[in-house]
């Protein structure tokens, strides 16, 4: 798994995840996100288009992001989910909790 984070504006950063997110790699993902989460950013644009696999451990990390941002009035927007990954979100009911949008523009916009 690879993760790259770019800070677009002080309020917004873009997170690109690539590869498989399981209990092993989720630890790395969580570590990588720890810094941006401590910043003042209120909008996380999460690009999951190159995530081929995601297990409950990955869901847990994303939930953590969602909760932290929500607390400071912000939001994480996820986009580009491939069907197997989208299915995992749906099975777990996360599609109703996390904001999943259709494009990067939508994810970045207001």
């Amino acid at each position: 798994m690879n993760v790259s984070i770019s800070t677009d504006t002080p309020e917004r950063c873009t997170v690109r995840v690539q590869g498989e997110v399981d209990a092993y790699t989720a630890v790395d993902l969580e570590k990588a996100l720890a810094g941006p989460l401590e910043s003042k950013a209120t909008r996380f644009v999460v690009d999951l288009s190159r995530v081929t696999y995601l297990s409950s451990a990955g869901l847990r990390v994303l939930l953590h992001v969602h909760q932290v941002l929500e607390k400071r009035g912000g939001q994480a927007r996820l986009f580009g989910l491939v069907p197997p990954v989208r299915k995992v979100f749906e099975m777990a009911g996360f599609d109703r909790v996390l904001r999943i949008v259709g494009s990067s523009e939508e994810a970045a916009g207001d």
Binding site: S55, S56, A57, L63, H64, M91, A92, G93, R96, V97
Partner: peptide
């Protein structure tokens, strides 16, 4: 309580929920 599993970080059973669903 799948709702709880989705809302709480420490709520267990997400993985098991996925196993049951699949």
């Amino acid at each position: 309580d799948p709702e709880r599993a989705t809302r709480e970080l420490r709520g267990g059973g997400r993985g098991i929920l996925l196993m049951q669903k699949t």
